[in-house]
Amino acid sequence: MRMPTTELAERSVMAGDGATMVDVSGLNVGFKNAKGLVRAVNGVDLQLKRGEVLALLGESGSGKSVTLRALIRLNPEHKSIVSGRIVVAGTDVTTLAPEAMQDFRGGVASMIFQDPGLALDPVYRVGDQIAETVMRHKKVSRQEARKRALELFERVRIPSPERRLDAYPHELSGGMRQRAMIALSLSCDPQVLLADEPTTALDATVQIQILLLLRELQRDLGLTVIFVTHDIGVAVEVADRIAVMYAGRIVETGPVAEVIRGARHPYTLGLLATRAHGGRLQGRRLRTIPGNPPDLASLPPGCPFAPRCSSVEARCREIEPPLVELGPAHRMRCVLGT
C-alpha cells in the first residue's frame, strides 16, 4: 500500500481547483444520553474543493463517522445536538426541509458504508435496491432504472452483471458486495461521496482492488470524496489531503505528502510511528499509542490528547491548544508550534 513519493506530490497539486464543495466550520455534534452529553464532534472545520479527496484518519471513537453522517444529517435527529456551519455543494444542510434533505441524500451527496454485508437490505435483490434508488431520484421507469443498474454494475466491474443484479446480498462475495454498494451510491450521479471505511471489512487483496476502483471512479467522475479510514496506508493511497481526528477534533490537517513527511502533532507522529515498523500498514489498526481516548461525556479541560502525549507540558492541561499554521495548507492544534 505504499506509493512512490513523486506520485504523492503530483496528486496533491493536481486536484483542488474549482468550487468549494464541502464547507464545514465549527461543527459540534453531541449525543444526549442518561449520563449527559457525549461530545462526539467538537469544532471540526473541513473545506474541500471540487474533485478533492480528503482522508479522515483517527482511532476508533474519534468521531469520524459522526462527522460524515452530519454532512447528510444522518445522525438520529431527536437524540443529537448539532451546531455549526455545514454547506455541501452549495446547499446549507442545516436548514434544509426534511423532504429536500431526502432529495439531497443520494442525489447530491451519497454514502458508502464500512460493511456492505450490513448496509445492503438482506431480503431485496441488489439490482432492485439500485433501481429503487434511481427511481426515487430520477423520473424514470422501472425498466430504465434496471438498465441504469446494469450499466453501473458494468462500470464497477462486477462479472456477469445481468445475473448478479438478481442476486441477494448474501449470494455475493464481500468484494462484490462492496462493488454493488459503490454502484448504488453512484447511481444518481452524486457530486460528493462520503466513504466510511469502505475497505476495512474486506480481505487485503480485495481491499486494494476496491481502493483502485474508487480512485478511478473518483477521477473519471470528478467526485469530491471524504474517505474515512483507520489506516494511514489507505489514506496515502487515495487522498490528496489528510485530516487527523482525535476526540472529535481535527488535530492536524494538510496535503498528504506534507503530513506524511512533516507531521508535527504528537498524535500524528504517534500514528506515523506504526509506519516505521516494516513499512507495511495494510489492515493494521492504529493502536500503538499507549493509553485510551478520553471519555467524550466528560472531556478534560485543555488538550484532550494531553494525558497520552509524550511531549505534554503543564499548559496543555489548561488552555485549548491553538491553531498553528505549519505551511500553506498545513495546520495543527497544539501548543508545540507556538
Binding site: Q102, D103, G106, L118, R136
Partner: peptide, 25 residues
C-alpha cells in the same frame, strides 16, 4: 437498529419506503 436502515435513509428514500423495507424484513 441495523445499519442497512441507515443506508436506506442515506440513499434518500422516503420514510414510507424505508418502512416498507423494515416490514419486508
Amino acid at each position: 437498529n441495523q445499519e442497512f436502515v441507515q443506508a436506506l435513509r442515506a440513499k434518500g428514500l422516503w420514510h414510507g419506503q424505508v418502512m416498507r423495507h423494515v416490514a419486508r424484513n
